[in-house]
Write a protein that binds this DNA or RNA. Structure first.
Lengths: 209, 209
DNA sequence: CGGTATATGATACCGATGTATCACCATGTT
DNA sequence: AACATGGTGATACATCGGTATCATATACCG
């Protein structure tokens, strides 16, 4: 065998290039050649590591999910050890808001894939719903903890609230990326909603924005 | 001049075809030829009425906005004459949920354009923000009326609530189109939120779903 | 009645894009 | 040392998509 190379690293490198292109010019501008150029490799290499364009697309999506998962884990690990559920949820949702370039690209590319999944469903569905399900599970757990700690008003329907938070967060993210709202405005909405959701007597202030 | 034809009607016809194609196969599948075939006209005709593809795209977007505007107007006109603000807002938001094929296509195509606007900003921006601004204005007015009628808790920040409702509605619509939620679940979230927003003593039930 | 501007069809062109092919290089194993 | 195999480059091919061109039919105006 020739000088053996770390395949996974190469694939990650190429996937990163795709995300950069999609984040800059849109997912429709993603072509095998554009990705190759962005990654600084030859077209043939992209073909070699991802046989077809479809595989390249789902590969990049999976890569993006993994990456964002790490981002979340890192951010949540920075929180003080016994975190109030409210602070946890605040940080969790804040991470999805397009505050810096990386999260902006994440939202943009993620939404692009979501739109893709609306029509070419089966193509991209599996890695996509996996990521979304993961977020939903974590949020549900956090809300359960909050409920167990008696921080939610009685009769709160957790599934409904989770759906609300996720939809709201996505909508806010989109409005920010579009330029319709500033990050601060989005934050105000989120903050206000959490205040209402955790409507107990002890009204704590939220976590770090 | 030859047999003079209603240009506006022709343009609307072609724009409709574009929306159908985009709603079925995705906005990336929209090509001049595909639109021509869908509209049952020659490629040349599409070129004739919309010189370039960019013009075709913004033309169709404008058409979509007009059309949805009419949908809203019709729906809101059906409400009983002195409408409670709550019922008005409920109906207003319900209209955006992807309940039937038409609203599903509206959401799908609208979101596709939104994603486009994230990168090719100037191309599609003008008609896009116009539509969004319009919704925002109507919602703001409705909330102002509610406030004037004393149906909102004191200290409600209307701008924040409007941003919340719009973002939430968009997010819910997307989750429904993706297949992540059913329309009923989305409705439950919306309903629950309106309950909370109109948290006065007289707890009225919502309008027709 | 003829002409001219409007309206529509057929088709050509060029660039981009996904995919395929062929050759070649490098290295670890026998 | 030889060779088989993993890795890489150059390039070709077919298709598709946007745009351009040429021709022509229609009907209204003078």
């Amino acid at each position: 065998m020739p000088r053996t190379v770390d395949h996974e690293e190469r694939r990650a490198h190429i996937a990163d290039a795709l995300v950069r292109v999609a984040g800059r010019d849109g997912l429709h501008a993603v072509t095998m050649r554009a990705v190759a150029t962005e990654a600084g490799v030859s077209l043939r290499l992209v073909q070699y590591y991802f046989d077809t364009k479809a595989q390249l697309m789902v590969g990049a999506l999976r890569h993006l999910e993994r990456q964002s998962h790490q981002r979340w884990a890192r951010r949540l690990a920075e929180l003080p050890d016994p975190v109030s559920p409210r602070a946890f949820i605040g940080a969790f949702l804040a991470e999805a808001l397009p505050t810096d370039e990386q999260s902006r690209v994440f939202h943009l590319v993620g939404t692009s894939y979501a739109v893709l999944a609306m029509t070419d469903s089966d193509l991209v569905e599996e890695p996509f719903v996996a990521g979304v399900d993961n977020l939903e599970r974590q949020l549900t757990d956090a809300l359960r903890r909050a409920e167990a700690a008696g921080q939610l008003p009685p009769g709160t329907d957790i599934a409904v609230e989770v759906a609300h938070l996720l939809a709201l967060n996505h909508g806010l993210g989109t409005s920010v990326v579009i330029g319709q709202r500033t990050v601060d405005e989005a934050w105000a909405v989120l903050h206000r909603h959490l205040d209402r959701l955790f409507a107990t007597d002890t009204r704590a202030t939220a976590a770090t924005p």
